[in-house]
């Protein structure tokens, strides 16, 4: 075993917990910090701790924010009658990047998965129904992932939403824009064929 002084060993151990960081990268990062000017490392340390102290989840939609309500829920320009239901806050960022969606969001903070012990009660589903009851919602877009658990969650919501007076939609899936048919996996392609649409002429 190589011997690292205690503070260095601690840093390497903590860095290694980050996603996609292995022992070698962790060591490299630690030595980089050792050599960097102390103002830089202090800024990094403050940034990391402020992420935890200054950020929280929006009480309405669950998005990560530093003010209550978040900038999307507080924005009067957005269509508050359309709610897009997503799994995680980073899905929100992905949809926002399209610049095409003008409604608001609702982050579930996960998906239903009995094998992981996660049921509807562990997700932000009750708060979604509170929102629907208290406001005038016209449409709910289900934008959970096309995984087995994401599909199950979307089906569960569909069943519970079906007796309410609003439109339920599900984002479509199939061939990506610019996709070459030759390189698309068979299941996606067969699903895309199944979900083909008539062209109105």
């Amino acid at each position: 075993m190589h011997y690292h002084p205690q503070p260095l060993a601690d840093l390497i151990r903590e860095l290694q917990k980050l996603p996609s960081v292995g022992p070698k990268t962790a060591q490299r990062l630690a030595f980089y910090m050792l050599k960097a000017p102390s103002e830089d490392t202090a800024r990094l340390a403050t940034a990391i701790s402020e992420v935890k102290t200054r950020l929280f989840c929006c009480g309405i939609c669950g998005n990560i924010t530093d003010r209550e309500p978040c900038h999307i829920c507080a924005n009067p320009e957005r269509d508050h009658g359309v709610i897009c239901v997503i799994e995680e806050p980073d899905d929100l960022l992905a949809i926002e990047r399209t610049n095409g969606y003008k409604g608001v969001y609702h982050v579930l903070m996960g998906v239903i998965s009995p094998l992981d012990g996660i049921g509807p009660k562990d997700l932000r589903i009750d708060s979604l129904f509170d929102r629907i009851e208290s406001q005038n919602i016209e449409e709910v877009i289900l934008a959970t992932n096309y995984t087995t658990e994401g599909q199950a969650t979307s089906l569960y919501l569909t069943k519970r939403l079906s007796n309410l007076d609003l439109a339920i939609t599900r984002i479509s899936y199939g061939i990506p824009v610019g996709g070459d048919l030759e390189y698309i996996d068979e299941l996606t392609l067969s699903k895309a064929l199944e979900g083909r649409r008539r062209i109105d002429v």
């Binding site: 009995p114 049921g119 509807p120 658990e149 199950a152 089906l155």
Partner: peptide, 24 residues
């Protein structure tokens, strides 16, 4: 997933209304 849910329902740890989604 459905079998796990069935066991949870048997143990009264989950409500049967969830089954619908997995059935679908």
């Amino acid at each position: 997933q459905r079998n796990e849910l069935l066991k949870q329902i048997r143990g009264k740890h989950a409500s049967p209304e969830q089954l619908g989604a997995w059935d679908g």
